[in-house]
């Protein structure tokens, strides 16, 4: 059985999904179900004081008993803020220590600040967290994050929320070739073919949010992404044929043609 292993735990789905940007909790629930994802990212935010305590919450739509929560540090621009956020997340989730670290560099591009990311990763790993880390597609930084002890390294395909697809497959390939921990393409996937290409390159998994939530029909797109990730993974395992320029090789027999 081909399974994804992160920090010693096995998962059958290689698609990780975010829980943001949906129309409502019902759409969130349906889309995540259709995606087949087992790991879902969540954000940590101040509670709305004065809000009706009986209002539906994310925990009802996406119960932590059914999904593995991956609390993130979205919106954090310093190592300190990211560490604080994840300590709160660990307390909130009763000691759950699998987390997604992301430290952003600027609000226009949401490009990761790798210096702050490395700083935060070092402290969080020492503090016992199992860190899945969002980073740029720089192979040297990716290796450094693995050496620090991160349990998965998650390079961007393109900018967060851009849907631009895989802009630098060569860098991703170097990262995949050099790292031993799972490599998860995080950010930039726009449609099913992008996810399939990531998996065909040999990525261990793909993480996405906007590609599903931002589709015209998120639930349908969630199903498409599930199939794309599975198809891409199988194609990778199967080993694609070599690309050949000008070496025509027909699939049908060359002999036995009528009139010959």
């Amino acid at each position: 059985m081909d399974q994804l292993v992160i920090a010693g735990k096995t998962y059958s789905s290689r698609l990780l999904v975010g829980t943001g940007k949906y129309k409502d909790f019902e759409q969130t629930r349906l889309a995540i179900e259709a995606s087949g994802a087992e790991i879902v990212t969540v954000a940590i935010r101040r509670t709305n004081i004065g809000q009706d305590p009986n209002q539906p919450s994310l925990l009802d739509a996406v119960p932590p008993s059914k999904y593995t929560y991956l609390p993130n540090t979205a919106g954090c621009y310093t190592a300190d803020d990211a560490i604080r956020t994840l300590r709160l997340a660990r307390e909130l989730l009763d000691g759950h220590d699998l987390v997604k670290l992301e430290v952003l560099g600027d609000p226009q591009s949401l490009y990761p600040n790798v210096v702050e990311t490395i700083k935060a990763a070092e402290i969080l790993v020492k503090d016992g967290f199992k860190v899945m880390v969002y980073t740029s597609d720089d192979p040297i930084v990716a290796k450094q994050l693995e050496d620090i002890g991160c349990v998965a390294v998650m390079p961007l395909a393109s900018l967060i929320g851009s849907g631009m697809g895989i802009l630098n497959p060569w860098n991703l390939q170097i990262i995949i070739d050099r790292l031993k921990v799972p490599v998860v393409v995080d950010a930039g996937v726009g449609t099913a073919s992008d996810a399939a290409i990531a998996m065909e390159l040999g990525c261990d998994a793909v993480l996405m949010n906007t590609a599903i939530a931002g589709a015209q029909n998120p639930v349908l797109m969630a199903g498409a992404m599930k199939k794309a990730v599975e198809a891409g993974r199988e194609a990778f395992l199967a080993g694609r044929m070599a690309k050949k320029m000008y070496q025509a090789s027909p699939s049908s027999p060359t002999g036995g043609m009528i009139g010959s």
């Binding site: 975010g18 940590i44 935010r45 509670t47 989730l93």
Partner: peptide
Amino acid sequence: LEVVVAVGGG
């Protein structure tokens, strides 16, 4: 004090 909850996010 900071009082936080889990919300939808990517």
